[in-house]
Design a protein around this nucleic acid. Structure first.
Lengths: 201, 201, 201, 201
DNA sequence: AATGAATGAGCATTCATTCAT
DNA sequence: AATGAATGAATGCTCATTCAT
């Protein structure tokens, strides 16, 4: 990377950071490109030079952010912790960011019809899936996940929890924080609890 | 109700319906009051006569909608179905609406500081809680919910599922629909599944 | 006046009073007909039944108010006070209303092109002029007004003072109140003061 | 000033001019920002880029205009004319603008509570006061203003005349124009006239 | 390559006025 | 005679985007 490219890269990073902060704090619609430009210390025109549209800036920023997150999770997965600890770790580590991730995923779908570069998306989704496959496989292997469970269902269940945790985290200061113990309990054994027999139903 | 009031009531309902459709389809920010007015067949000024602001229209519409939903759920709760069937029914019946409900709840909090009529909100929240209390009590009584479980945690868990179902429903046409069987299974017995012993951990 | 007419008259008076209060406090443009209707305890439609337009309401209200004011001033003129006292009395009595009167007069001119009933205006102007003629004649007779002075010029001078007094009165609570002594002094003897010789110029 | 700044400055001047014309002709409320933009040959957004609000545009425009006026008056004060001539000159020179100046001053006070930049205002008021001090001092020195007169009262009296002149000028085409001779006479010697003895009162 | 300046289309909101009852 | 309800047109202001430099 020469001088030009380094500066360019740095500006892009500044834009990503400003965009992330503002979008997560106030939502996509409430943040103007000019605000982002100002906070990033560049001109709005520069943003358009790089990203073309506000939508594209948004998407690129998410992708960038997601890559960073997944790298973190991978590191945890490869650590020596027992499975439930890894789970808790990942869930809690960035819980306050997770709502953002999942909600934005849906939003991205709304953009699709505008000719977004699908390759990047699919690539990222591939990465997410890769992470989950590893996660579920590990859980099964260590006996914490029913072997009959498909990866897809487990993935859904896991993200569901992450989302919810993110939500609770966010509003924690307000009404109630949930005990992570109860949460793990629910995660692994459901509403019926750990000690249910099999007689119902 | 005389002629005036009947017409007034009808117009309000038309506005609620148009607002619901448009807001759920395109999101709060993307829908203009004029659009709603047009679709409802009234003038924008009429909307402002009734609701005062776009925010308030939004909130009132949600409250109205929520009341209707809860009435439906209540009816199901009071039916003769077995508990898991009731659960499934409620979760699925209006699954496509549920994302909306839960996401909007959070959004409403953002309005709070603008002097929203708290009474109405609290009243509605009371109703929701009332429904959950009944639901959880029933589940415990019929042995499907661990008696140690608090209402709050159960409530969280339930809404979490509803949200997720709503989400999947929405994108069902695309990649994967989840089997409701797996879902119920997860709901009651968690990731570890129905037949786990107690030996792990 | 029978029952109908009495009620009608009363409503009109209520409207006049509300309109006067609101217009003087907030200005013509900032006050809506609906506000006036509400404060007067009638429906906006009623106002339109009586006055036809906002403009006309405005004009009628001014005329009504002016008649009442002039009646007061007439009573003072006919009293036994010495001329400067009468002058001071009239200037101060309703000083806080005067700004309104004079400023609105100009505003009325802006309405003219919309076919306002000129008769009423001219009639009122006639009354004002009548009052001034009496006032100036009295002043001359008692030696307080230079006999060479025309009525028109004296009238202008007098209203100028009234206006200014109104203004100062209004902002009195804020910066400076002017001494009525200085004012009277200026009124009768100008900037050069009472004791000027004739040597300048 | 480079190319950018020159163009920017020019646009601002265009906006000031359009705003001045329209506001003075039709009043603050009757003129829309879009109209000003159109007459100035810029987009409404440009106006908002520079001024932020209609209120602020208004205030800035007044301040700009006032500075220009005061510069003119200063030049007259420093000329070789005798004092009454200077007075007449200043009063008449821009008489048609004066109503505007004084009336708007009051209006500006109404803006105060909205966080207007007080520094600019105070600075301008300082300038006005500076002009008056000079004016009154000169008048006293040349024997046209009673040495007992305070600056404040003299200032009030002077602006009162300016206002009234402005008013008459405006409606000059209609009913009566006032002779500047009479006016000067009144200004210096009041209603009692130049030749009054001291025997009244 | 980067930017300051400019914009047009759009949005929430208001208000004088009308009309069915 | 009086009104509650309804409205269309207008207004202040915003923002994604473009363009001259």
């Amino acid at each position: 990377m020469n001088g030009y490219e380094r500066r360019k890269h740095k500006k892009i990073e500044q834009v990503f950071e400003a965009a992330f902060q503002l979008f997560t704090r106030h939502g996509y619609q409430k943040v103007s490109v000019n605000e982002i430009a100002q906070q990033a210390g560049v001109s709005p025109a520069t943003i358009y030079n790089y990203f073309g549209t506000k939508d594209q800036l948004y998407i690129d920023m998410i992708m960038n952010w997601m890559d960073k997150q997944l790298a973190k999770y991978d590191r945890i997965l490869e650590s020596d912790l027992p499975f439930p600890e890894k789970t808790k770790e990942i869930m809690l580590l960035e819980a306050n960011n997770l709502t953002f991730l999942s909600e934005e995923f849906r939003r991205i779908q709304a953009f699709e019809d505008r000719g977004i570069d699908l390759k990047i998306r699919q690539e990222s989704e591939q990465k997410i899936k890769g992470f989950f496959m590893k996660f579920v496989a590990l859980g099964k292997q260590e006996g914490y996940i029913d072997k009959e469970q498909t990866e897809e269902v487990a993935m859904l269940f896991f993200t569901m929890f992450m989302n919810e945790l993110g939500r609770r985290w966010d509003s924690a200061n307000r009404e109630f924080a949930i005990s992570t113990e109860s949460l793990m309990e629910l995660f692994f054994y459901g509403l019926a609890g750990q000690h249910h027999g099999g007689e119902q139903r």
